[in-house]
């Protein structure tokens, strides 16, 4: 039995949505490769391979057909976000573990696409930072800062065989967010901190351009109506506001807002992670609350927490609140009294 409507909007499918998200990520990925070397291709490839492999395995285990669920492309998007969030040049099993948590635990244990409560990529990331903090703080240093930037082949070698004779410090460095926090706490002046080579014109060297490319991709998504303005704008505004207040209150301790917006995973989060429709709030008001909460929490964790970048935790904490936010921000239904209780005719 097939009821109405019999008409369907053309060129409209989950696959198309996911393809647009992937396409919007491309400028950011290219910028990443440009500034940090080809290592990103290795982690991207590994995450995607693991994600698709795990997706196949889990679909088979659950007795679901492969083709429609693989072709929706959601596993690839999760893998890409994970690869962009994780440090490059980490050991291969870290990517496998992260993907396992993302695709296996956060997605398929909940019933697959659309059913999960937590953002899969962020679950993978958070599990790794709790489980393997050492590897998660070794970030590939930008070209020009690192003593050595591995080529594609060398990157493969590093990922699969380990650093071997090469010192890890040769190609990694602390993240600027981390550097700022520790050095500011030690009492270094803002100008002195920013003078170091890992800092760029506004934020972190290299990262600031990558962030701008994410912004570009995000604007493309907005233009294509894949996402709405609510979440990214509110998220960035809440971040900037919190960072600004903190900076005003204590400039010696807290970096300026622009630095925060262009460092770490903020931009990626604003346009690609926080906007994941499955785990984000869905009502118009709820979206604003959710995004503001995530932005605020991100800044609190960055400023006071033990972790240099709190994107994963901020998003997961906001994810926890989503069902509650949704339940209490239901819009008024046509014909209902203003301020009336939901569900009462």
């Amino acid at each position: 039995m097939n009821g109405s409507p019999f008409a369907l909007l053309g060129h409209n499918s989950v696959t198309a949505v996911m393809a647009k998200v992937m396409a919007a990520l491309i400028p950011g990925i290219i910028a990443h490769a440009w500034f940090f070397g080809p290592g990103i291709w290795v982690s991207l490839l590994l995450c995607m391979l693991f994600a698709v492999g795990l997706e196949c395995l889990l679909l088979l285990l659950r007795g679901l057909p492969l083709k429609p669920f693989l072709s929706d492309g959601s596993a690839l998007v999760t893998a890409a976000l994970l690869a962009l969030a994780l440090p490059t040049l980490a050991p291969w099993w870290l990517y496998l573990m992260a993907t396992l948590f993302a695709v296996g635990v956060a997605k398929h244990l909940y019933g697959g696409l659309g059913q999960n409560l937590f953002n899969p990529a962020m679950v993978g990331y958070a599990a790794m930072i709790i489980g393997f903090p050492v590897y998660m703080t070794q970030w590939a240093a930008p070209i020009g800062v690192a003593h050595f930037t591995p080529s594609l082949a060398e990157a493969f070698d590093l990922v699969f065989a380990g650093s071997g004779a090469i010192s890890v410090d040769a190609y990694t460095s602390a993240t600027p967010l981390d550097a700022w926090k520790t050095q500011a706490r030690q009492g270094m002046a803002e100008a002195d901190i920013l003078a170091q080579p890992i800092f760029g014109w506004a934020g972190a060297r290299g990262q600031e351009m990558v962030a701008l490319m994410y912004l570009l991709g995000g604007l493309l998504l907005l233009a294509n109506r894949v996402i709405t303005w609510h979440i990214p704008v509110t998220f960035l505004a809440a971040m900037a506001l919190t960072a600004g207040l903190l900076h005003l209150a204590n400039p010696a301790q807290h970096a300026p807002p622009l630095f925060h917006l262009l460092s770490g995973g903020a931009m990626l989060c604003a346009f690609f992670i926080a906007t994941d429709p499955v785990t984000a709030a869905s009502t118009p008001l709820g979206k604003l609350i959710y995004a503001a909460l995530a932005g605020f929490l991100l800044m609190i964790i960055r400023a006071f927490g033990a972790y240099p970048d709190g994107v994963a935790f901020a998003i997961l904490l906001a994810n926890i609140c989503v069902p509650f936010i949704d339940a209490y921000t239901q819009p008024r239904v046509f014909g209902h009294k203003r301020g009336g209780k939901r569900g009462q005719a």
Binding site: V105, A106, L117, F118, V123, A126, A127, I130, L297, I300, I301, F304, G305, A306, Y307, G310, A312, F313, A314, L316, L317, N319, I320
Partner: peptide, 12 residues
């Protein structure tokens, strides 16, 4: 997973 997320508050 909630507990995992709450670990983000560590050090606050």
């Amino acid at each position: 997973l909630m507990s995992l997320a709450f670990m983000g508050f560590a050090g606050l």
